[in-house]
Nucleic acid binder design. Structure first.
Lengths: 222, 222
DNA sequence: CAAACTTGTTACCAAACTGTTACCACTTGA
DNA sequence: TCAAGTGGTAACAGTTTGGTAACAAGTTTG
């Protein structure tokens, strides 16, 4: 199981690497933010251990980038123990936050806990909700018994966000962020995208698909 | 979303309860290990916040018991910050371990992180009071057995404030602040809003809904 | 290269939302 | 009894929101 370890302090990185390897993980080290993103894309690790204080790009940026593209579990390491920082990191999608100094044993235990939890809900990436099957890797949706329909990249990300949270209402802003990332996107574009996606889904079979919750956002029926 | 809070320190339990409720969770308190297990079985919470140091049965026992029967996420609270204790708790199946003293905000953030990872959608915030069910996220109210009625954003906030304090009288100023924030809002607008909200609620089923307390404000019947 | 597709942009319309003003009934207290 | 204040109702207009359409620039594909 591959773990991406993003830590610029060489000595600490080595110690942690050693511990993780002894615990049976394969460790991919990265020493700054830019390298971290590159390594993440290249190696597709099962989990990321991320120092907040990094050269090139700080940990928040890396965290946001990874979260905008996948559900890979992220554990933050940091000397900063301020509440606002911790809350912000967790809200950004981090799974755990460990304050330095920490013990290697605890890190391993927390990694196992997060992986256990992630493994339970993670899957191949294929989502099945109420008759629809979405394969994000292939950019395809299918209605039960129907033919697969091709989606564009943006449409796929939108539908994935909605199906991942089936039954819940996602605000326009949340969806914009899920589709276009932190920068970019707008209400207008979201409107367009929903319109286009609905057209494809309706053409593919099922009836009412994406619910509008006026003044709030959209929801995929549970 | 129901959270079982197992904490024998009454004062702390109350503080945490308050915070969690304000964050939109429904809190079920338990004050010792035996009660915790009973409450867990009875109420099937979405997550358990568990103090380690308990009368009757200690936290480890409770944790093991719950883990042996379900995947319900568990977050441990404890004054003990020893590594061995933390590692042991995590290996026993806990999802997170928070060392006292902690801040309520961080607890909420960690609860959300664990719930997110566990696949549950975040706190729903649904309020049920005397036959009415309000889902603030969807801007919908429903009378028992009836169809959901759509509310506007302002109406939702008003009804939410009233239902959160069901049985109590809220002054006009308090309501204005709850709906429009610190700036903005006026008696006239509140009058209008109450009128419109009542119209929708009456059309939806139930009889007398929002009580007027002349010269003071409004109340939602307990 | 040309055709097809993807994406962002602008525009328009209908519906919904919100603030404002006005009017009436009722209570309260001088 | 009358004036002032409070609360309910009504109508109206400006704004916002959501769905639809058409189009252009950029990209991919045959």
């Amino acid at each position: 199981m591959k773990i991406l370890l993003v830590e610029d302090d060489l000595a600490l990185s080595d110690v942690v690497s050693f511990t993780l390897r002894r615990a049976g993980f394969e460790v991919i080290p990265a020493y700054d933010g830019a390298a971290a993103i590159a390594a993440w894309e290249a190696s597709q690790p099962a989990l990321v251990v991320l120092d907040l204080n990094l050269p090139k790009q700080d940990g928040f940026t890396v965290c946001r980038h990874i979260r905008s593209q996948s559900q890979t579990p992220i554990i933050i390491l940091s000397v900063r123990s301020g509440d606002d920082v911790i809350v912000r990191a967790l809200e950004l999608g981090a799974d755990d936050y460990i304050v330095k100094p920490f013990s290697p044993a605890q890190l391993v235990a927390r990694i196992r806990a997060v992986l256990r939890r992630a493994g339970a809900s993670a899957a191949s990436g294929v989502l099945e909700r109420g008759g629809w099957t979405l394969d994000p890797a292939r950019h395809e949706v299918r209605w039960v018994g129907g033919e697969p329909v091709h989606l564009t990249g943006l449409e796929t990300r939108l539908l994935e966000a909605l199906m991942l949270n089936a039954g819940a209402v996602l605000t326009a802003d949340a969806l914009i962020q899920a589709v276009w990332g932190v920068e970019g996107g707008s209400r207008t574009m979201l409107k367009q995208l929903v319109y286009r996606l609905r057209a494809k889904l309706e053409a593919a079979g099922g009836g009412e698909i994406i619910e509008t919750v006026p003044g709030v956002g959209y929801a995929f029926p549970a």
